[in-house]
């Protein structure tokens, strides 16, 4: 089997498996998996920047929230139906990531991390400041009647799972496509050796900006769908924790792998789900995982898999 065929078989196989699960899973894991697929889409977006371009952002919650609030607020205050509201979320994420990219990319390394953290904090505080429209911490529910896309009722668990899977596959395959294209290869080159990439004639800033926008827009798309599928938008999705979580998922699953974000999200979701039954301090698991991963497995699960077994894993 050629490498391309193998790669397609693996990822299409995952999507097919997830499709079959929709018909066999009981209600609770079905709901969980729908949530995981949307969050994994967010992680896939994060991975474009962190895993493939080598830029560590501590502020991706602002993009997730831009999508969620772009969708939710346009529905709530402008009366948009679901389709245009999703586009509004997407547009908000794209615009925000363009602006943040233009500014933050003037810095590098630790400064880039802090700048993104600060911008995200400003977005979070702005959501609180305009509580009149956003209802601040409390957030707002998106009424069931509005959660209809092309005649499909998204509050129905079966439909919701299906739409989450469609979103997930779209993100998975578009990023797979992106990183196999010449532009995607340049991102990897920048991650590996920025100065060398520049001296091969590549416009490093333009490529990084493209990566920020692609990453931010995918994150926003995930945020918009999260709000729509689960019927709620709240400021907690813009808080620091939601910037740290995708980093954790990607690190756990394997940065710079296509399948890693899904694996990481799946594992961490269930780990936290199990722990939260025992204690309210479930973020302890996240903390321990972060420390252990940086110490012992910086490549993550899929990264180790690639190192040991499947060198072709994209």
């Amino acid at each position: 089997m050629s490498e391309t065929a193998r790669i397609l078989a693996l990822h299409a196989g995952l999507v097919a498996l997830l499709l079959v699960l929709n018909f066999v899973l009981p209600a609770y894991p079905q709901g969980n998996l729908a949530r995981i697929m949307v969050l994994a889409s967010y992680a896939i977006g994060y991975n474009v920047l962190f895993g493939y371009t080598g830029l560590l952002s501590l502020g991706h919650a602002m993009f997730f929230a831009a999508g969620m609030y772009g969708m939710g607020l346009s529905m709530r205050h402008l009366g948009f139906p679901a389709g245009p509201a999703l586009l509004a979320g997407l547009g908000a994420g794209a615009a925000l990531s363009l602006v943040v990219g233009l500014l933050a990319l003037r810095t590098a390394g630790v400064a880039f991390m802090i700048v993104t953290l600060m911008f995200a904090q400003a977005v979070y505080l702005a959501i609180l400041l305009f509580g009149k429209y956003t209802r601040g911490d409390e957030g707002f529910v998106i009424p069931q009647a509005d959660r209809v896309l092309a005649g499909i009722d998204l509050s129905d668990p079966f439909n919701r799972y299906f739409v989450a899977l469609a979103l997930f596959s779209f993100c998975l395959f578009s990023v797979l496509w992106l990183i196999r294209r010449p532009a995607g290869r340049v991102l990897v080159a920048i991650r590996e050796n920025e100065e060398r990439a520049r001296l091969l004639g590549y416009d490093v800033f333009a490529h990084k900006l493209g990566a920020v926008v692609a990453s931010g827009t995918i994150s926003a798309l995930a945020g918009a769908f999260y709000g729509l599928l689960f019927g709620y938008a709240g400021a907690s999705f813009a808080a620091v924790q939601y910037s740290i979580l995708p980093l954790l998922w990607v690190l756990l699953g394997g940065a710079g792998t296509i399948i890693g974000p899904f694996i990481g999200t799946l594992f961490m979701f269930y780990l936290i789900d199990l722990t939260s039954g025992l204690t309210s301090a479930y973020m302890l698991i996240a903390g321990v995982a972060l420390v252990l991963l940086t110490l012992f497995a910086p490549q993550g699960l899929a990264g180790e898999l690639r190192k040991r077994l499947w060198r072709w894993l994209p």
Binding site: Y282, M283, L284, A286, G287, V288, A289, L290, L293, T294
Partner: peptide, 14 residues
């Protein structure tokens, strides 16, 4: 930075 984020959650949650 990533490790100290982990420490942050460990201390806070403990």
């Amino acid at each position: 930075i990533v490790a100290t984020i982990g420490l942050l959650y460990i201390i806070q949650q403990l």
